[in-house]
């Protein structure tokens, strides 16, 4: 298997690198009481790239918002430890230092997160200026980061406005804003979903190179298993607000243990080969408000039994990976 050295490298990262972010028992609920995210625990090591995967209503974006306390209307329980310090207990002022400082943020929709009446340069420099960096130094660093993200005439383009940029360039600006203050962790929520496939590949390659250069940890939120397979070291799969599986990218694609992960992987059409029939998962993803009792996936699961209907399966560690299922695959299932 040609991937063996890569796999070993990924495991080495995990074993050697210290923990950067540890989320423990994170629950997020609306004031009315519906838990959008229910007891999520995950760890990101230094330099590690974790993909948080899920469909609509899975709670993957809410998890990211909660980690950064971006939505003050949500009730957040649990702990989010950044280098051993619980950032959920920080003051709003200290939290502002973490956001954009230690943790950078990039969203999918560039037109929403970029200000149409501010120049691109001012927007990229803003997070530095807030932190007391001088005007000239901020400009120098803005040019440096855009250049590293593949914008060749960065110095000339800082005075431009967003509408003068193409979709791929806008997304680079969004990434530059998130990365200019040299954060340890980048949280990227569907950063390439709105882009055409060739531009998506360019942006992903740039991000890949940038992360390698700076030993950046990345929490990549996506629904696209192709992007997961080409970018992530580890994959956390969410369904209806809970983690159902957490494994290295190789383990997950080669031998998914949770029936939902298996269904998800089998449902993807492939561009590199012709197939006869896709194995579709019956039903639709359930929004948290309609989450059934027991395992949230049981109404769509072929393996469901009585215990699945009544008891929420705990997220159990087995052989260096985690799965929350009463009947996880134990045979050598190969989905790929």
């Amino acid at each position: 298997m040609n991937a063996a050295p890569d796999l070993a490298a990924a495991e080495a990262v995990e074993a050697a690198a210290p923990e950067l972010l540890r989320v423990e028992g994170l629950s997020v609920s609306l004031p009315g009481g519906v838990a959008l995210v229910d007891g999520v625990s995950l760890t990101i090591h230094r330099g590690e790239r974790v993909a948080l995967v899920g469909e609509s209503g899975s709670g993957k974006s809410v998890t990211a918002q909660a980690v950064l306390r971006l939505n003050d209307r949500l009730r957040i329980d649990g702990r989010v430890m950044l280098d051993g310090r619980d950032i959920l207990s920080l003051s709003e002022r200290e939290m502002a230092g973490v956001r954009g400082g230690r943790i950078g943020l990039a969203f999918q929709d560039a037109m929403v997160c970029l200000d149409p009446i501010m120049t691109v340069g001012d927007q990229i420099e803003e997070s530095l200026r807030i932190r007391g960096v001088g005007r000239a130094e901020a400009r120098r660093r803005a040019i440096a980061i855009l250049t590293e993200l593949g914008v060749h005439d960065a110095a000339d383009r800082l005075g431009s406005y967003v509408h003068e940029f193409s979709g791929g360039m806008r997304q680079r600006v969004v990434l530059a804003m998130a990365l200019v203050a040299q954060p340890d962790l980048l949280i990227a929520d569907e950063p390439t979903t709105a882009l055409d496939v060739r531009v998506q590949r360019q942006v992903l390659d740039l991000l890949d190179q940038f992360a390698a250069n700076h030993a950046l940890s990345v929490l990549l939120i996506t629904h696209d298993m192709g992007i997961v397979a080409s970018f992530a070291d580890r994959v956390v799969v969410m369904y209806s607000g809970r983690i159902v599986e957490d494994a290295s990218v190789f383990d997950l694609f080669e031998r998914p243990l949770h029936p939902y992960t298996q269904g998800l992987l089998a449902a993807i059409p492939r561009v590199d080969r012709s197939q006869d029939e896709l194995a579709a998962v019956p039903g639709s993803p359930v929004p948290p408000a309609l989450r059934p009792s027991g395992c949230a996936f049981h109404p769509r699961c072929a393996k469901a039994t009585e215990v699945c209907r009544t008891e929420v399966p705990p997220l159990e560690t087995m052989g260096g990976r985690r799965v929350a299922c009463h009947h996880p695959a134990t045979d050598g299932v190969h989905a790929v």
């Binding site: 609306l30 519906v34 939505n71 209307r73 949500l74 408000a289």
Partner: peptide, 9 residues
């Protein structure tokens, strides 16, 4: 988020 806003309103 929207749901919460509706309820609050």
């Amino acid at each position: 988020m929207t749901l919460a806003a509706v309820r609050r309103s």
